[in-house]
């Protein structure tokens, strides 16, 4: 009796979870259907699995180029965020001065500023730098990476700061007495110990940067520079009525996310949980 009820519960729970994801099923099955089939029954499996809409959507979205841009921007931004914010956080924790406190508090306080408050002056400033100093900040992927680092600095420093505070200082002191430089101490001793929080910082930043739309839409003007959210946006602007093509396009954009999730599922859920508790 007890066993059947527990099996029933298991089945019900998984059904609930699958029902929850039904919109993904819906766009997937409809990405193979022609117009008539779609209107006959939007929920049924398609008659045949032809990839013609995928090929067409890939071409119209310039999908491979967008995927490349998204990967490049996300990976370089996240690597630099990890390096710079862990170094900064470590120094702030280990230097006992009022400047450390002021800097740390400034990082924390700015977490409350919405992006909309910064976007216009930021764009003015970036195009001013581009024009007057000839540093290409505006309309380049590298400029966007620079801005990504700035916007994600606060949260990353905050997470590292909390974690580093719990590491005993004695280890570092021993290494310093042995004559290692600060640089050596940090990279050889401290950074490896930060692994759990580095995973959290990386995951939170990957999700946020990969999916970001507004900032790239303001900075990247050239079509060749578009990221996945940007190319999806313009794709929908042009082909709103052609739903089957749109469904294939949406499925394409979700595939990299599913691959990422399948590979790092445990770390992601753990990382999110830990990030929130801090």
């Amino acid at each position: 009796m007890r066993k059947t009820s527990s099996i029933l519960k298991s089945v019900l729970l998984i059904l609930l979870a699958l029902f929850f994801l039904s919109p993904i099923y819906i766009i997937f099955v409809n990405s193979f259907k022609d117009r008539q089939e779609l209107y006959d029954n939007a929920l049924a499996l398609p008659d045949n699995f032809s990839f013609q809409y995928y090929l067409e959507a890939m071409e119209k979205m310039n999908f491979l180029s967008a995927l490349g841009n998204s990967l490049y921007i996300t990976i370089v931004s996240v690597v630099l965020i990890v390096i710079l914010s862990s170094m900064t956080a470590w120094m702030l924790v280990r230097t006992d001065s009022k400047w450390s406190t002021v800097i740390f508090m400034t990082f924390i306080a700015t977490m409350l500023i919405p992006f909309q408050t910064l976007m216009m002056p930021l764009m003015q400033f970036m195009s001013a730098i581009t024009e007057n100093l000839n540093i290409p900040m505006y309309n380049t992927r590298e400029g966007l990476i620079f801005m990504n680092i700035g916007f994600h600095a606060s949260l990353s420093v905050f997470l590292y700061h909390g974690f580093i505070k719990s590491i005993p200082i004695t280890l570092e002191e021993a290494a310093t007495i042995d004559g290692a430089s600060k640089f050596g101490v940090f990279w050889r001793i401290i950074f490896p110990m930060l692994k759990p929080i580095t995973a959290t910082v990386m995951i939170l930043n990957v999700i946020s940067i990969w999916n970001d739309f507004l900032l790239p839409s303001l900075t990247l003007i050239d079509t060749a520079l578009r990221t996945i959210p940007l190319s999806t946006f313009f794709f929908f602007g042009e082909f709103t009525i052609q739903w089957n093509l749109a469904m294939a396009g949406l499925t394409l954009t979700i595939i990299p996310v599913i691959i990422f999730y399948a590979m790092a599922q445990k770390h992601i859920i753990k990382g999110i949980g830990e990030g929130a508790v801090k």
């Binding site: 170094m87 900064t88 120094m91 400034t106 910064l118 620079f146 680092i149 700035g150 600095a153 940090f186």
Partner: peptide, 17 residues
């Protein structure tokens, strides 16, 4: 250790604010 990040952060967040 701290100036690179503070520099970027100042340009992207503090000055625009």
């Amino acid at each position: 250790f701290t100036v690179p990040l503070i520099f970027i952060f100042t340009i992207v967040v503090l000055i625009p604010f």
